[in-house]
Structure formats: structure tokens, C-alpha cells
Nucleic acid binder design. Structure first.
Lengths: 177, 177
DNA sequence: CCCGCTTGTGCAACTAGTTGCAGAACACTC
DNA sequence: GAGTGTTCTGCAACTAGTTGCACAAGCGGG
């Protein structure tokens, strides 16, 4: 039940159309809660139905016409309530770790290349996050609570990527023995 | 498409019945690929259908009767092929990071307690992993390739939990300002 | 001997997420 | 002004995972 709240958050930060949201998910929110445009359109429909958001009046409402949404007070209330809600972390699901475990049973040839590829991807992601940190969170921008929290989330992303880079490096070393 | 391969791996390590598999998923494989017993039974059916595993002949086959499965050569071949297959890491999905981002927008009261709870859960998990490491991977058991790979997977789990413990500690510090 | 508890298997219905495709509006250009 | 590409919205069908429940077999106690 996180997608609607991801959308509410994004819309509070800035009212947007479905496609704009999709793009913002690809860059920002999607770093820790990704979604395809179809998920987003469907969810926008449900949120509107539920009275949590509304479409800004468009000059000529029609199919294929851009529709901007904004959050209604009920939506903000729902989000506020959700933020304080308690929810267990769900168990990790990593196909790569699983693969490694399988490799321990049937042998690992062919995994090296895959590990290198992942290492490269995670290095790139790490660089991207670091660039965002430099751009969006210079020391001056770390004062207000909202900025500090957003920065905290980004630090989480950075440290996670760092974890993967380290683990993959270690794994490659192990396989090269 | 990882669940069938998780099951094949588990069955190669030791032929088991559905319920046994479920328990082993709760302890071991499930640490990085969890599954409920229904998922497992359904998948066992499909794997048997596909000729990847077979049920060991039981004295009196009947409903509610324990059924042991073992992997057939075709299943092992499928798993071997899968290990070398290339697959992009899927983007992270963390409700907690999302919540933090939402908190930056609507305010964070009530998050402290939730963070403390998660911190506690991750600390416990970390301790559990460390206990497993001490028990199953003493230095002597780090020689054979299979053991080294299994150990590597466990190290991954440990470092991930360590990441969460660190991030949550940092986050709590930030909120306490 | 039958009652309740545990073990073990499984169906059905649901929720969340993915993939493939299509159609309307607009802009551009030849 | 017909043809082509882009932007934007959306339906339909599918896959994976979750939840709730049912039912059979075996075991132990009153």
C-alpha cells in the first residue's frame, strides 16, 4: 500500500500530470519506490475516486489531453496518518544473492561476468547519487528539517549502493582465487 | 522467475517435503528470497509438471500425506543455466525510505518510535546472522569453493543489516536534534 | 473410542506489479 | 493537407505474491 502514498508525496511537492509524475518517479522518488506509468495512471484514478486528489480544471477535457492533479486536504491527512503508521520491514529479496547460493550448489562459471556488470551498474548509480548530493545538498541546504530529512534519504541510497559495490568487489575477489 | 530456482537450490541441498521446504525458507534461503507455504506448494506442482523434480514414491499416496521431492537432471540443468543468466538488479523498494521522504513534506511526528522499532528488528537479525556465521563458518570451513560462496552470501546479509542499523541510528540522531 | 491438537497439503480469491498495445491531440514538414 | 513523430492517457491481460480457509492423517489423553 505504498504506491498511493508515494504519489501523494510527489504531488504535494509539486502538482503534476501523469506523465510528469512518471518522469519524476524515474529520477527521484523512484530511486526507492519505482513505478511504471500504467501503475501511476491507475492509482491516480483511484486516488481521485477516493477524494484524495483532484484534477485541476482543464480548458478542454478530453482523452489524450494533459491533466494536472493536486492533493486535497483529505489526501494530505491520509498521508500524515500513513507516515506515523507502523509496518514491518519486508524481508529482502535479492535474485543475485540467491544466484550466488545456487552457484554454491551447481557451480559458478559464468557468474563473474554478471557480477562485473552489476558492479558497474551500482558504481554508476552511486556516482549519480553523489552528484545529486553535491548539487542539491550543499552544507547551506542542510538546515531546515525537511532538507535534512531528504538528505537522510539520499544518504540511505548512497550507503546502500556503497554496500553493493563493496560486496560485489569482495565476491569477484573470491571467485578469482 | 526466482522462486522455482530457489526451490531447486533448496531441494538439491536436501530433498524435502513441502512443509520442510517452508521451514527451511523461514530460516535459510528465505533470508534473501522468502516465500509462503502456498507459493511453495504451487511451485512444486509446476516444477513436477515440467519434469524438473519428482515426488519420491510414497507407501500410500493420499491427500494430507507427506510427499518428498527430489531434483531430476532436467531440473539441475535448468538451475545451472539460470545461474549464468543475466538479469538487471531490480530497483530498491523501501517503504521506510519512502515514509521518510513523505515525512519531509508533512512532518515527522510519530516516526521516532517506528525507527526505534526497526532498529531493534535489524539489530536482532544482525545478531542472528552473526550467530550463524560463528556456528556454520569457522575458519576451517572456509576452504572449499561451495563453503566460501555460501559464506559470501551470509556476509552480504550481515553487511546489509549493518547498513540498516547504521542508517537508522543516524536517522534517529537527526530527528532528535 | 472420540475429541482436540499438530502436521501436512492444497484450493480460491485477492492485491500489487508488469507488459503490450492503442488512441487522441498536437506539432512539424514536405 | 497528408504523413510522420511525439506527448499524454489509458485499457486488457498477465505474472508474482498474499491471505484466508478447508480437509485429511496421525497422535495423545480422558
Amino acid at each position: 500500500m505504498s504506491l498511493p502514498h508515494a504519489i501523494l508525496t510527489a504531488l504535494l511537492e509539486k502538482p503534476s500530470s501523469g506523465l510528469e509524475l512518471t518522469r519524476r518517479f524515474d529520477r527521484s522518488i523512484g530511486y526507492f519506490w519505482s513505478a511504471t506509468h500504467q501503475q501511476i495512471y491507475r492509482e491516480l484514478g483511484k486516488l481521485e475516486q477516493a477524494g484524495h486528489i483532484r484534477a485541476l480544471p482543464a480548458p478542454t477535457p478530453a482523452r489524450g489531453q494533459k491533466k494536472e492533479y493536486e492533493v486535497l486536504p483529505a489526501g494530505r491527512a491520509e498521508l500524515t496518518e500513513w507516515v506515523a503508521r507502523s509496518e514491518d520491514p519486508k524481508p529482502l529479496r535479492s535474485a543475485l544473492l540467491l544466484r550466488m547460493r545456487a552457484a554454491a550448489v551447481v557451480g559458478a562459471p559464468g557468474m563473474r561476468e554478471e557480477l562485473r556488470r552489476h558492479l558497474d551498474l551500482h558504481r554508476r548509480q552511486l556516482e549519480e547519487y553523489r552528484a545529486i548530493e553535491v548539487r542539491d545538498f550543499p552544507p547551506a541546504r542542510r538546515e531546515s528539517e525537511p532538507d535534512r530529512l531528504r538528505h537522510l534519504v539520499l544518504r540511505g541510497g548512497i550507503d546502500l549502493e556503497r554496500f553493493w559495490v563493496e560486496w560485489l568487489t569482495q565476491a569477484l575477489g573470491e571467485l578469482e582465487r
